[in-house]
Amino acid sequence: MLKDITLGQYYPRDSVIHRLDPRTKLVGTLVFLLSLFLFRSFACCLVATLFLGAVIRASKVPFGFMVRGLRSIMVLLAITMFFNLLLTPGIPVLRIWKLTVTREGILQALFMAIRLIYLIIGSTVMTLTTTPNHLTDGMEKGLAPLNRLHVPVHEVSMMMSIALRFIPILMEETDKIMKAQMARGADFESGGLIKKAKNLVPLLVPLFVSAFRRANDLALAMEARGYRGGQGRTKMKPLIYQKRDYGAYLILAGYLVCICAAGILSPL
C-alpha cells in the first residue's frame, strides 16, 4: 500500500533529463502543466503527447514507473469524466433515461482525462529524474529574488528538503512499528471506523515519539555543525546553467510556439 506512491521517488539513471539543471526542469514542468490548460483541440493534444513522449524517452526511466502514479487518481479521473460527460450542454448524441450525453460532453470528458493524466505524468517525470535535494536547491535559487521582499526563501526550502528527506524514513518507521504491534496481536484491518481509529493508537504514539526524537537530534546535529540559516551560506556545488539547459529552454520555447500555433490554427 505504502509502496505505490511514486511521486517524490527518484529513479537513478544517467540521462540528459537527469543532468539538466533543476531550475530548467521546474520551469519546464510548470510551462508544460500550464500549456495543458491552454489547449482545446486534437492538434494541441498531439503536440503535447509528442513532447511528453520525447521527454520520457530521453529520461530513460521505464514507462511503467510513470504510469504507477496514476493509480492514485483513478477515482478522481472517473468522477471527473462522469460529470463532464453528462453535464455539458450541447448537441445530444445519446439519451439514457433522464441522462443526456452530448458531443461537447464527450470531447470535454476526453480532454479533461488527458489533461489530468498528463498533469500527473508530467510532474512524475520531474520527480523521477530529480533528487529531492536538487529540487529544493533549484527552488531556492530560482526564487532567490523574493529574498528582497523578505521572504525567507532559504529557510522554506530547507524545511522542504528536510520534510522530503523524512518521508521515506518515517514510512519505514511506520512499517516497523506496524510489524512490532502486529507481532503483539494488533489488528489494523478489521473493525468499524471507530475501532479502526482506536487501533491506530499503538501505531501513532511510537511514530510521533520517534518523529520528535529525530527532529530534536537533527536540530542538535545542525547546530553542532554551525548551521544558522541562509545568511552568508555558500554552496559546494552551486547551480550554473550549462549549454544543455539553454538548449532545453529553446526546445521548450519551440514547444510553446507549436502548441499555440496548433491551438490557433485548428480551434477544434
Binding site: 516497523k176 499503538p202 511510537p206 515519539v209 520517534s210 526524537r213
Partner: peptide
Amino acid sequence: LRSKVGLVFQYPEHQLF
C-alpha cells in the same frame, strides 16, 4: 501464529506506547 511465535524487535521504542 503470531501469538505462538513471539517476535521481539530490535528497538523497544517501536512497540511501547
